[in-house]
Write a protein that binds this DNA or RNA. Structure first.
Lengths: 229, 229
DNA sequence: TCACTATAGGACACTGAGTGCCACCCGAGA
DNA sequence: TCTCGGGTGGCACTCAGTGTCCTATAGTGA
């Protein structure tokens, strides 16, 4: 009997191989469990549904992303934090290109797996939008723009990732995504900022901060926040 | 026994009411079929899966959208065609606000229905992107931007639609969506056009068209296309 | 080394979604 | 009247997913 921690791993491996060899619908959970050397019931202790077997870590990844965004320093621009989050996601694919490519092959062919993955990416999109709303204001003209920005980030992520997967998983995805995202998001940033900002309001007041040269950045930021009440 | 065409209708009505009253998972297909006065087997002749029962027309709508885009005149700007398509979609919700709101209530609460709907909207997104690629060039720097534009359109559609549904389905969604979309897409249009256009190429050549005053627009367009080979 | 407990896996039964198959009904046409 | 075709009913079957109870093992304290 395999060690506790490896069961999940061998289940995903068995599932992926079986799905590739004979198709998703043609593979029963019994077969996956048998190939992994465990009981059927054990499969459903590790995965809520059959589709989960080849997306083993989407939930954990989403939690990581949310944590990363929530703990992001207020000094880093929101779009930078989103970029970092997207790079974290693509990094998990890059960590095991071979498996990622196999998974892509299966997912491409099975509608229910595609829907499952789309649902997963839409959760990232929600997280991004929520973060932008929190960091950058959630007034009505801006909420929509934040959702659009989040959609743009996720779309770009998916676009670059799929191209990389189609190419067999060779090359540096993170670099490619980083470049593509800066191209998209930097282009969108003025669009996000220039419009619908309240004008003629106290936001336009001048704020003067005097500080010693050596003061750390976070301290200055603190002071600015304090000055604005 | 009800007339053929009404069976589908009474099935969706029964399903929606039962889902609202006792929950999605707690409602069996047997109950839906019984409430609609047909056999269980008949339910699955009308709907592929249980989730389909409250999205009766997404497939037909998608076909309509694709047809609309494919037959769009080359004279109308691509983003206008996309806007029109999005308005068609929201129009089907506006046609029966009461049902739309009920459906929203159920969908909001049931994960599998949410995923189902997300998958449906992602199909619209694919259709939009494919249309833009076809109409506006499918070279690599542009493909990504087209996907982003498509995502922006769908995101805007969903944003406006959900706000309307949360508000109980009162007011003119089509007008609101039209306004929101022009705000978003017109803002994005220069972003789409200004970059990654091949410069110093023959695209910048001057083309002079001389024609009679009364010549119909489509004929001039034809001539321009011909002149560019 | 020996209980003791918590945690994870196994065995089994059960519900319900989804499918295949065949029989039936009913309207259209020869 | 016969037959043909499309939609329906009935039935049986597979398999996903769950609840329940039992067992094995790892870790803990004495």
């Amino acid at each position: 009997m395999p060690a506790r921690r490896d069961i999940r791993r061998s289940l995903t491996a068995a599932a992926l191989d079986l799905f590739l060899a004979q198709g998703f619908d043609e593979t029963t959970v019994d077969q996956i469990a048998e190939a992994a050397g465990v009981a059927r019931r054990t499969f459903f202790r590790h995965f809520k549904v059959k589709e989960d077997a080849i997306f083993p870590d989407h939930d954990a990844m989403l939690r990581e992303i949310v944590a990363h965004l929530e703990t992001a320093s207020p000094l880093v621009p929101p779009l930078t934090a989103v970029t970092e989050a997207a790079l974290m996601v693509v990094g998990t694919y890059a960590a095991d290109p071979e498996t990622s490519v196999k998974r892509y092959e299966v997912t491409r062919r099975v509608p229910s797996l595609r829907e499952h993955e789309i649902a997963a990416t839409s959760r990232y999109q929600r997280a991004f939008a929520a973060f932008l709303n929190e960091r950058d204001g959630a007034g009505e003209p801006r909420r929509l723009r934040h959702e659009v920005i989040a959609a743009a980030a996720v779309t770009t992520h998916n676009h670059v990732l799929r191209a990389w997967l189609r190419g067999g998983g060779t090359g540096d995805v993170r670099a490619r995504l980083s470049e593509a995202l800066s191209g998209i998001l930097e282009g969108l940033e003025p669009w996000l900022d220039d419009r619908d900002r309240p004008r003629d309001s106290e936001d336009d007041d001048v704020l003067v901060v005097v500080t010693r040269r050596g003061t750390p950045l976070w301290k200055i930021a603190q002071e600015i926040e304090a000055a604005r009440g």
